[in-house]
Design a protein around this nucleic acid. Structure first.
Lengths: 338, 338
DNA sequence: TTTGTTTGCTTAAACGTTTAAGCAAATCAT
DNA sequence: ATGATTTGCTTAAACGTTTAAGCAAACAAA
């Protein structure tokens, strides 16, 4: 068995030429004859030569690795985004290292350190819910390593961002509910400190005002949008004297929790209360009634994010700056708001 | 701004000592004086020194990267396994590169090549449904790189394996259904070529025989276990003259599909037909009725797999061999079989 | 005092690749 | 036939780290 790996030097010795010639032959350098190239490739195959990525990365100062940080892979949105990014980046010769922050700021910082330590050529991230302190992301920028954000971004970082139009999505949802005759629309949202959730809240408020509906503070709620949060907040809404006739929940898991509570209280959805979620998780079309939700175009976001990264490394001289790509989201109307 | 990264040499120059001394100081070598160590650490911090992982990996012949191949991250089981592995491996100084095969043999081969190219110190994998040709996995072994399999393994590879007892799980399920009075239990299984699904089928058949129930070939079905497969096969079962009074589906998504079809045909679950899934995906407790399923102990599998890897790299002289760790799964009884 | 041991560093090579610089031979232009 | 250009390679250094080997100084033991 051939335990010791073959190197360029082994090929060179076999053919009595220099390692430099071998390296160039393997890269199809124009200054190497066809004859030599063929011989090199033949011997390389015979010795089962595999290039040592570490050595070339060290020499070239480029690892061809891209670090990815997501809140969690265990959501349809993020896993789909990652799949697309992987596809685009692999074709360009990059491999990706996926890390999860689990929505924790501390874990996110650890992930950033890990990725920098691994000498990644760039970092693509979607920020944890908890994150408000941007110093760790500034650290990436200060090292001159490309940083691209998607979905959960932050204007202040002044880097490329790819996401959907959360503000407009709220308008779409509110107007859809109004068209169904709803007059008291509640919003169970995320925390305002996260930009996308703030945008959804702003969009909701502006849409309510624009359509001349009264804005009731009791109907606007912030939470972490877990299933449990959805249950709790829906329960609270049902305790109001003046109950809503529709609830727009800024996350599908929380929407599902709300649906469970409505069901347990024998409230008919959509007839008594209409419900809209956000994210278009697969289960929204599996539960009964199926839940109206917003498709965030995960595939497009994945591809665009990867392509944005590639553009950045192709033009390193261009200074990083706030460059937003905002996609229009799509409302998928299902039984819960029909 | 400090664009060029500080190296060991920079620290050495600053203090007028050799790079070797700096390297040793940073690793707390006993042959370096406390005074020098303190000085080195002070300057390192001042220059914002970050070790170049590529250089040390090249020199040491060890990348401290572990490659992970899973069918997809977008399932609760796999993402939970990965989270635990990451925790254990990070603490031991390893980082992980996650790749997805999307159940495709071709993609899996590409992933293996990618990981080998990246010089990972080991590969942890759960095989794609499609995979029958093991030559690519043999390639990993032949390079002397540790290979650990979990969940979807293959005895013939003769490597460490961590998984649950699929055979016994089928017994548990069948006996649970019998205890509820079921006499005609169908099985919508995976493809026999995948070891775990074969074990579930064998377990099902043996349990049926052991309990003196007639074994009806029409009630044993192989499929890819997607939601659509579940719908189609459940539909076929309902066309039988002699319908089953219980269905054991070897995957939760397919079980959900089956449930949808039962619901659409106004068949009461569990009263007319009892239903059991496999995998304990979160939605099993979210749909109505909630679905009885099998908890695969993803956390334990993740930790054990990572620890098995660490044991292997700690004892490289020990030859790889079939070393199985089999956990007992847990039946979570819910409304669909109550 | 002599010898041996420990301490604290240095020197130099190595890991496997890439690449700038250079040089001889072959080919071309005139 | 001469000089210019192209072709096809070699030499040697570099990337940043680790580590075996070695050496001088300090200390300890006799």
């Amino acid at each position: 068995m051939n335990k010791k790996k073959a190197t360029i030097k082994d090929i060179a010795n076999e053919l009595n030429i220099s390692s430099a010639a071998v390296s160039k032959a393997l890269h199809d350098d124009s200054r190497i004859s066809k004859k030599t190239k063929d011989a090199v490739k033949r011997v390389a195959k015979a010795l089962n030569y595999q290039p040592n990525h570490l050595a070339s990365a060290l020499r070239k100062g480029k690892s061809n690795l891209v670090g990815v940080i997501v809140p969690r892979t265990n959501s349809n949105f993020f896993s789909s985004v990652i799949e697309q990014m992987e596809d685009v980046l692999n074709k360009a010769g990059y491999n990706i290292i996926i890390t999860q922050s689990n929505e924790s700021f501390k874990k996110e910082c650890k992930n950033i350190d890990t990725l920098l330590f691994t000498q990644v050529d760039g970092i693509i991230a979607s920020m944890a819910n908890e994150t408000v302190d941007l110093s760790y992301f500034e650290k990436i920028k200060s090292k001159g390593i490309p940083l691209i954000l998607f979905d959960r971004g932050e204007n202040d970082l002044n880097v490329d961002y790819i996401g959907i139009n959360d503000y407009d999505s709220s308008h779409m949802i509110v107007e859809h509910l109004i068209s169904k005759g709803c007059k008291r629309i509640a919003h169970i949202g995320g925390y305002r400190r996260t930009r996308i959730f703030n945008n959804r809240i702003r969009g909701y408020i502006d849409a309510i005002n624009k359509n001349n509906l009264p804005l009731d503070k009791n109907l606007v709620i912030e939470s972490a949008l877990t299933l449990e949060d959805g249950r709790r907040e829906m329960g609270n809404l049902l305790k109001l004297n003046n109950k809503p006739d529709a609830v727009y929940v800024a996350g599908d898991y929380a929407a599902l929790g709300a649906l469970q509570v409505l069901d347990e209280n024998n409230i008919n959805v959509p007839n008594q209360i209409r419900l809209v979620g956000f994210g278009n998780e697969p289960f929204t079309s599996l539960v009964s009634p199926t839940i109206t939700s917003v498709n965030q175009h995960s595939k497009a976001i994945g591809r665009l994010t990867a392509e944005t990264f590639l553009k950045r490394v192709a033009n390193p001289e261009v200074k990083q700056s706030l460059n937003k790509i905002i996609l229009d989201a799509e409302l998928i109307v299902r039984d819960s708001s029909e």
